[in-house]
Simulated assay, not measured.
Amino acid sequence: MSAAPVRTAATAGRDAVRDRLWQAGRAGGEDTASAVALATLRDGTGVEAVPLDPIAPVQARVVTEWAAGRLTVARERAATAVHDRVIAALAHRPGHRGEPPVRACVVVACVNGERHTLPARLFAEVLRLRGRRVDFLGARVRPCT
């Protein structure tokens, strides 16, 4: 028999942030979700960490709930759109360092036929936060011919 995981103040705080973001996403509350993400930054979470946690795990929950039939397609799309806009708010927040130093350019795109851009957008934003120049092309990008 395994022991229950130890719940620390840090994990409780992380879980509370995830829950607030989950509730805001389900309600289509872009302003609330952005406020949660920006407050997480003010509380000392590094800007690179926010797309990876809480946004990525909450989005995974959205997809899991949709797949289980507990969220409608409309609710799933609304929550995903909220999370996408939160990522944009992080990138354009006051005090953002502006243009990153010119380094190798990374092109991020979804292959032709792929409509789900949020994972690629999360990846692109983390690269941008690490100082890379990123061209995010979005969904359904056809290969060069």
Rank of each mutant, 00 (worst) to 15 (best):
A89W: 04
A4I: 09
G95E: 01
R97A: 12
A10I: 02
A35M: 14
E48Y: 00
R14Q: 10
V62I: 07
A3C: 09
A60C: 03
R70V: 07
Q59W: 01
L118E: 09
D43E: 10
R140L: 05
R128F: 02
H92M: 01
L71G: 04
E114N: 02
R132V: 05
G44I: 10
G138H: 03
V108P: 15
D84P: 12
A68E: 15
A35W: 08
V86P: 08
T11M: 02
P5R: 05
A39Y: 00
P54S: 01
T72Y: 11
H116F: 13
V50N: 05
G29E: 11
A39L: 01
A33L: 04
V102L: 11
T72M: 07
A4F: 13
R132Q: 06
A37L: 06
L129C: 02
V108Y: 10
A24V: 08
M1K: 10
L52Q: 00
P54H: 00
H92T: 02
T145R: 15
Q59K: 04
R70E: 13
R26W: 05
A78C: 12
R26P: 14
A88Y: 13
V107K: 02
G138E: 03
I87Q: 12
T11D: 06
L71N: 09
A9E: 10
F136R: 11
V6S: 03
A139Y: 08
T64R: 09
D43M: 03
G138S: 00
A10Q: 07
L41F: 05
